[in-house]
């Protein structure tokens, strides 16, 4: 059971306080730093909210790419994700996924998984 307000809520609330009540009080030369702090808090909040789902979706997508067997319940998402991503990197470097069909499947997977990370780091960049 998670505490309420949760971590993301605390970060978002703290960020609003920084932007609404502190930013204007700061000397000009400190405002850039304050904006960076606000940005870091926003990223951390989105990661708390979305991070697990993004990892699981990426793992599912990687599994489809590799027709990897379904997970058993004891599996650790992070370590399986890391292992499959390493395998993918090594396969790409060795010339894998070079037929147009495979390349298309690869591109679809990469676009999905990178876009999901961008939804955490900078959702504005998702708009073309």
């Amino acid at each position: 059971m998670s505490q309420q307000p949760n971590g993301a809520d605390l970060l978002n609330t703290a960020r609003s306080a920084l932007l609404q009540h502190l930013l204007d009080e700061l000397p000009e030369r400190r405002r850039y730093l304050a904006r960076m702090i606000a940005n870091a808090m926003a990223i951390a909040a989105r990661e708390l909210e979305l991070g697990d789902g993004v990892d699981r979706a990426e793992l599912t997508s990687l599994r489809m790419l590799y027709q990897d067997p379904a997970p058993d319940s004891s599996e650790d998402v992070a370590s399986r994700l890391e292992a499959l991503n390493r395998r993918l990197c090594s396969d790409i470097r060795q010339g894998g996924f070079s037929s147009r069909v495979d390349e298309k499947r690869l591109r679809d997977h990469l676009r999905r998984s990178v876009a999901a990370r961008v939804a955490i780091s900078n959702p504005k960049a998702l708009k073309v």
């Binding site: 960076m36 990223i43 676009r111 990178v114 876009a115 990370r117 961008v118 780091s121 900078n122 960049a125």
Partner: peptide, 15 residues
Amino acid sequence: LELALTGRISDELQL
């Protein structure tokens, strides 16, 4: 902090 945040730009550059 600036270097740390720069790392997070990598994703949108990849996209």
